[in-house]
Design a binder for these strands. Sequence first.
DNA 1: CGGTATCCTGCAAGATACTG
DNA 2: CAGTATCTTGCAGGATACCG
Lengths: 127, 127
Amino acid sequence: MPDTPNAPYEGIVILAPHRELLDQVLDKWSLAVLNELCERPCRFNDLRRAIPAVTQKSLTATLRRLERNGVVERVVVSSRPVAVEYRITPLGKTLRHPVDVLLAWAAEHMPEIERARARFDEDVPAH
Amino acid sequence: MPDTPNAPYEGIVILAPHRELLDQVLDKWSLAVLNELCERPCRFNDLRRAIPAVTQKSLTATLRRLERNGVVERVVVSSRPVAVEYRITPLGKTLRHPVDVLLAWAAEHMPEIERARARFDEDVPAH
DNA sequence: CGGTATCCTGCAAGATACTG
DNA sequence: CAGTATCTTGCAGGATACCG
């Protein structure tokens, strides 16, 4: 039935492009940026202040990637001096719900996960 | 109101441990492994066959990490020769819903995202 | 079969300096 | 203010060989 013969396993194949997309929008700093921009539009240095641990370079890269994927919009306000504002897009807003579901899961199960980690680290202290 | 004075911004602080957890359970190969183990218990080499692109080393690392976080269980079946089976845990099953929501988002908005990428890549061809 | 043990490489990401 | 340009480094992850 598949026109590509010997396809490995459909589930995994289907997964791949989504996996790549998640790498783009859920990477190290994206959640923090998205979280911030959902509150309000931000200037570049607003974001730096809100996320102290991020470097200029990484923040720029994160914003460009999010912009490229259409979840964030870069607005240049022509004033003196020029101001740049980042905003969440309508597409970006649709990402909020899935992320919230994920964070809710993390919050709910964190205690259980920490117990699992403690158990594992105790049983396998070192080889 | 916060008992920690000068906390940077609560949202981001709260985010950090969750961010770390997601790095553990949503990393490069975890989705594929989880997806597979939700279907059925698998032996090590079953997983290798189901996910051809993963190396032995990465698969081992992924399974150990998932096991440590309590979402996967490693069961040694004492037979001749010894067999090892990996199973999803009850905790692991609770991860399925959030992940499905995320994948549904990806599937639903993929076309829009691809348009955004095309637009971006055209407007910013190269510097 | 189900892994370790090594070696190696690319590249994500930090530090730092400079710019329109 | 909002970046770009370099340089450097840690380390995730691949390749390969070996083991109980």
